[in-house]
């Protein structure tokens, strides 16, 4: 059953009213039918009302809602990254503690998921927390996640067996930090061409002596690039440690 009506559908009338190419309408009917003319006039009136009154009033709100949604997604990605990093650190710590309890701690804490590395190259700034695609001359900054320990030492060793203390810069021992807050190392580090380079972050309850750490790292560097790539833990009396391998390639 269908309505036996001579009237064009609302859809046809709306198409006509909104000035889209309409399907052929029964011209004589439309001209003579008060109901269809009323429908046509009503759709046109409503469309005009939207354009003149509703649109100017509601567009800012529509824009704000769509903008806010996009912004929230963007914010979420920014917020989620540290949360994911923290979760990774927790997971890594469990692995680390499990190895401490076991007989053969062959696997250390993975660095890339635990800390953030930002690079400035010319005018461009980007996240390079995977430690790859770095170039000599890049200026890097590190953001270290909290690990619940009050002392931090950040050191590195490269393929030329050069060991350095990145934080506290030039210090003789670990520096004190807020054990519950992320810590951004002050200043930036300019990368030299020696590759690979491995950064170690040591968290401890008591300060570590920088010279002891440097001696161990020089020893590691002396074993060559492959040893640097594969060694994720060193025998430092830190409660927790994490690491990041930097691979630098000239452009």
């Amino acid at each position: 059953m269908s309505p036996k009506t001579p009237h064009p559908s609302s859809f046809e009338i709306d198409k006509l009213a909104l000035q889209e190419p309409a399907s052929p309408l029964p011209g004589s009917h439309l001209g003579a039918c008060p109901r269809c003319q009323e429908d046509l006039a009503q759709t046109r009136a409503e469309a005009d009302h939207f354009t003149q009154a509703v649109r100017p009033r509601t567009l800012p709100d529509v824009r704000r809602r769509l903008t806010r949604r996009r912004f929230r997604l963007w914010q979420l990605s920014v917020i989620a990254a540290p949360a994911l990093a923290a979760a990774s650190v927790m997971l890594a710590m469990r692995v680390h503690w499990a190895h401490q309890e076991g007989a053969a701690p062959a696997v250390g804490i993975k660095g890339p998921a635990a800390l953030r590395l930002f690079v400035r190259r010319g005018t461009r700034v980007f996240d390079a927390s995977d430690g790859r695609d770095l170039r000599p001359g890049d200026a890097i900054r590190l953001v270290v996640p909290p690990a619940g320990e009050p002392y931090l030492l950040v050191a590195s060793v490269d393929a030329q067996a050069k060991a350095s203390i990145y934080w506290p810069f030039g210090g003789a021992q670990s520096g004190r930090i807020d054990p519950k807050a992320r810590f951004e190392l002050p200043g930036s580090i300019t990368l030299d061409p020696a590759s690979p380079e491995r950064i170690f972050i040591f968290y401890s309850r008591k300060p570590l002596l920088a010279e002891d750490v440097l001696t161990l790292l020089r020893s590691l560097g002396a074993r060559g690039g492959e040893a640097i790539r594969t060694t994720e833990r060193v025998a430092v009396p830190a409660e927790q440690q994490t690491t990041l391998l930097l691979e630098k390639r000239a452009p």
Partner: peptide, 17 residues
């Protein structure tokens, strides 16, 4: 922002009606 404005102007009258 312009895209939202353009699409709102294009589709808004039909939606509202």
């Amino acid at each position: 922002d312009d895209r939202v404005s353009r699409l709102y102007s294009a589709h808004g009258p039909a939606i509202y009606a």
